[in-house]
Amino acid sequence: MESKDYLKDLSEIKDLMNKSSRFISLSGLSGILAGTYALIGAAIAYWLVTNYSYGTLILDGKIFRLVMLDLCLVAFLSIITGIILTTRKAKKNNTKMWDATSKRLVINFLIPLVAGGLYILIILSNGKYGQTGGLMLIFYGLALVNASKYSIGDIRYLGYIEIILGLIATLFPGYGFWLWVLGFGVMHIVYGTWMHFKYDK
């Protein structure tokens, strides 16, 4: 009889440690949707560049600005969807959306991401845009790995994959676009589906 109580103690300890230090209400569905937005956004960018820009991008051209707008829209929609679905899941789990764990998660996610974003803007303004896709993947991957300590551990693996794809993209800038599609589009959908069935069900 007594050992059952101790077992309960131990599982309660584990549960409290997880609940108090990790934000576990990330929604898998939002990953699937973010990947879908990325694929649609990439298709639009591809269409713009091949039809109106003869397959090349000029940094101060109108098409380039449209592609940037397209990219910002993808990021914006992904973030909004993520927030809405995660809030919904947090409510279902009976946890708060904005508490110490989610704050820590967001801060640790943003540090590599913002540093990388600024770096990309700086080299873009210097006219070097061949590596943009690869750098986005690398810094996004680093942000995921850094944030994984404060959420469900699996995010780490998505981070590793993004970093590897990013490195390949910087090595072969010609395939940057397709690796970006693979990293931000396909990988998010694969990963989101996996998370959805593993945790949301």
Partner: peptide, 20 residues
């Protein structure tokens, strides 16, 4: 239970306030 709980939370967090 509660004392064990307090310790569990503090073991994995640098600090925690009363409300948390």
């Amino acid at each position: 239970r509660i004392r064990l709980g307090i310790m569990s939370i503090l073991m994995v967090n640098e600090f925690a306030d009363f409300n948390m």
